[in-house]
Design a protein around this nucleic acid. Sequence first.
DNA 1: CATATTTTATGAGTTTTTTTCACGTTGATA
DNA 2: TATCAACGTGAAAAAAACTCATAAAATATG
Lengths: 304, 304
Amino acid sequence: MLELRHLRTLIALRDAGSLVEAAERVHLTQSALSHQLKDLEDRLGNPLFLRKTRPVEFTRAGQRLLALAEQILPQVRLAERDLARLAGNEQGRLHMAIECHSCFQWLMPTIDDFRNHWPEVEVDIPSGHHFDPLPALGREQLDLVITADPQPIAGVHYEPLFRYEGLLAIAKQHTLANAAYVTPRDLADETLITYPVEHSRLDVFSQFLDPAGVRPREIRTAELTLMMMQLVASGRGVCALPNWALTEYLERDYVRAVALGEEGMWNTLFAAIREESRDLPWMDDFLRTARETSFAVLEGIKPA
Amino acid sequence: MLELRHLRTLIALRDAGSLVEAAERVHLTQSALSHQLKDLEDRLGNPLFLRKTRPVEFTRAGQRLLALAEQILPQVRLAERDLARLAGNEQGRLHMAIECHSCFQWLMPTIDDFRNHWPEVEVDIPSGHHFDPLPALGREQLDLVITADPQPIAGVHYEPLFRYEGLLAIAKQHTLANAAYVTPRDLADETLITYPVEHSRLDVFSQFLDPAGVRPREIRTAELTLMMMQLVASGRGVCALPNWALTEYLERDYVRAVALGEEGMWNTLFAAIREESRDLPWMDDFLRTARETSFAVLEGIKPA
DNA sequence: CATATTTTATGAGTTTTTTTCACGTTGATA
DNA sequence: TATCAACGTGAAAAAAACTCATAAAATATG
């Protein structure tokens, strides 16, 4: 019998284009999906998609089910939200801080969506604080912190949101612009542009340069991504940023991006929250919304 | 995670009014439903319905899910039909006969609905045949026969549709009109009105009178249910009919109905089809439609 | 009001389904 | 034709769903 599970799988498959990646999205193995879809196809009596193309191509039957999924799943999501609201605790406060400079891109639409469904929750990103955000969680000054380096703090829980790849932005005319990837050594003679924060909180250092014992020739800082891009484009340095933060500049062919190391430099973004707030219905919904929105808005990210 | 299964259960629960009967409808045990709904309630964080009333009463959460179910399940049903159609074999012939005189009540709406979705299948109830319908199945003169007594015939498969109770229609002023049930002996002095068919095909005889070795004082026949009711109402006899065939007369307070025996006389109605036609997509859909329509249209029937 | 009767809940055990693991197959690419 | 990535497959493991037996609760009944 057809179940929502099947529809969710099909949507994931369409968005991902392959079983392997779809499996990641629904947090199952590729094998599980292969079995699941085969069973479904057997019961329906005809195939749902062609596996020999990339991305996979859906048959008429597959398209019909996709249409159903797109019709139904949003309705289910709405109902689930209503139920969460009925579970009580509509009231609440969600004051956030971001340790991640490029996060507004997905955070703003997330907040918009969330506000629509939880008008009683007071959402804010209080500005002007100079303290370290993570400890402020415990002091109840903040309720959620977006961070990429979770530090064990009593009473703080880190909820993984998604994984992203740190890329090196390079001028188009740079020698390395068309390389498959750069090595730490390649950066020894470069000017590295970073956000003006401590070295320890920059993953280019903690994950890439420091382990190899390499220091770039020079370090410059810039507050805004746009400024960084201008410096990079004009050949005055290189800079490491999350893949999604670069897409708009890559599309405009403003700069090039190269992987950091053969495997790429992958990182996980977390939402840090207080342990107690884990089972608040609206907190749960916020995290879910954040993940959904991120996947809809950003390209090239992976499930945590 | 919410699944369609849960929604189907809730609909069954609402239609049935109790877990016991809802369980019958979805072909599970009462225990299974109790567990299933408890799990769901636990995960949602609030109860879905109050069990201490008859029929059960749904909470706001329960009502929200019911609303979702009513929104979604028909869409799913539509999609399933489309998929069945895509599975090929839209073409076909469905010539039917009914061995059951009162079946038009649910068969007509069933056929109407079915025709809408399978225009390529030629549906008909050929009239004017005098032969025994069941053997005509094997001869490919018919494709489906509605019958209450399945006889083992090679190549013929009997698909149970639903169970119904045979009741005895009695004049309002009759002594037995308010009895809890009648015994075979009670009919020894009555005039029994039946459809003009062989004794062996009338369940009052095969299931009720014959086992007790009782014969009614007199037997009269009538072609139409309406005529039977007129005879009964005027005290000129009693007659046994399926519960649903009587509801309209009972509502108008035209006659009374009494159970046959302490347990009631229950029977199963079957659709007899050829073995090969079992896995035709449209045949499957016809049977499903027949069951759905019967439950929607008739009262007091039970799943087979 | 006590006693049957019906309905729901519960825990243990079983069955079924789903998922994973390990490997084989396939098709595209170089 | 070797290589690589994606997909398929069967057996085994894990998880989920269901049943059975029975208890508890509620309602009907005398």
